[in-house]
Computed example of a mutant assay.
Amino acid sequence: MNVKGKKLNITDMIILTILLVISILCLLPVIHIFALSFSSSSAASAGIVTVFPIDFTFAPYTQIIDDPYFFNSFFVSVKRVLLGGIVNFVLTVMMAFALSNEKSEFRSRNLYMWIIVFAFMFNGGLIPTYMVVQSTGLIDTLWALVLPTAVPIFNVIILMNFFRGLPRALKDAAIVDGSGPWRMLIQIYIPLALPAIATVTLFSIVMHWNSFFDGLIYMNKTENMPLQTYIQQLVIRPDEITSANKDEIMQKASSRTFNAAKIVVTMLPILVIYPFLQKYFVKGITLGSVKE
């Protein structure tokens, strides 16, 4: 047995077999959820759905998509991911670059490090955070979903350690050539840190897309809710579904099939994005986690 021209010994084959089994075990629940979302209510209630749909139906997806607020909530989530991703990227890169300097170059570096580590471990709590958002007039606005998480400290630490791992000679050469901090960051640090940036970008996208609780407490109007919050409300308060054929749909879709369809809808965008960032993921998180 050969892989890329390398002959595998018995140990390699055992390792590959174990990894293959683990991969299958990870995929089976996802396949089961897909099958369940396309199965009838009676098949789901009977527990006979495995990896293939039984009594194939689109009723659970019709129950979601036919709601007039569904696509509105979807685009709210898309706007949140785009705006939140840009804000996270800009602030994370700038903060990580500044903190990657030595104390001799940035005298207050250690002070800021203690501040962000303290903020990483502790926060003001839900009520004070809500009061701050309310007092700044952000309730029922997209900024209420973006600004409270504008600086993800974990991502800052990963990217900062990546910057600190770059050869010092690059920075010295840039200074000799007359480069200022902005040019150094844009032309040297960011291109070299693409693996780490892709990693923290993936973290940011997943965080913004999957969050539902902040939309629950900061949004009073249904049309302002992100997708995850709105779907969660559909599960808790199904009476708000305004589909024209609601009765017919509810006869074909149970809570199990509806929840399965909800999971499929919410994970599809991440499944589409992840393959483009996956090649950077392992390299970025390991290179950014061994310093400081």
Rank of each mutant, 00 (worst) to 15 (best):
I24E: 01
I24C: 04
L25Q: 03
C26P: 01
C26V: 08
L27D: 02
L28S: 04
V30Q: 02
I31S: 01
H32K: 11
H32N: 13
I33M: 07
I33D: 00
A35Y: 06
L36V: 11
L36M: 15
S37R: 06
F38L: 15
S39F: 03
S39I: 05
S39H: 08
S39N: 07
S41F: 03
S41K: 14
S41H: 02
S42V: 15
A43H: 01
A43K: 00
A43M: 01
A43I: 00
A44L: 01
A44R: 09
A44T: 10
G47P: 12
G47M: 12
I48K: 14
I48F: 06
V49G: 02
V49T: 00
V51S: 08
V51G: 05
F52R: 10
F52D: 02
F52Q: 06
P53D: 12
P53S: 13
I54N: 02
D55E: 15
T57K: 12
F58K: 01
F58H: 05
A59L: 06
A59S: 10
A59C: 04
A59Q: 02
P60L: 02
P60I: 03
Y61I: 13
Y61P: 08
Y61N: 12
T62H: 14
Q63L: 14
Q63I: 00
I64V: 09
I65P: 06
D67T: 09
P68K: 11
P68N: 07
Y69A: 10
Y69E: 09
F70N: 00
F71W: 14
F71V: 08
N72E: 14
N72F: 10
N72V: 15
S73R: 07
S73A: 15
F74K: 03
F75S: 01
V76R: 13
V76F: 04
S77T: 04
V78A: 01
K79W: 02
R80Q: 11
V81H: 05
L82F: 09
L83R: 00
L83P: 06
G84D: 03
I86C: 10
V87A: 04
V87P: 00
N88Y: 05
N88K: 08
N88W: 00
N88Q: 08
F89N: 03
V90L: 15
V90Y: 09
V90C: 12
L91K: 06
L91R: 04
L91S: 12
T92I: 13
T92R: 09
V93M: 09
V93L: 11
M94L: 15
M95K: 03
A96C: 08
F97N: 08
N101P: 06
E102F: 13
K103D: 10
K103E: 12
S104C: 05
F106M: 04
F106S: 04
F106L: 06
R107Q: 07
S108Q: 04
S108G: 12
S108P: 03
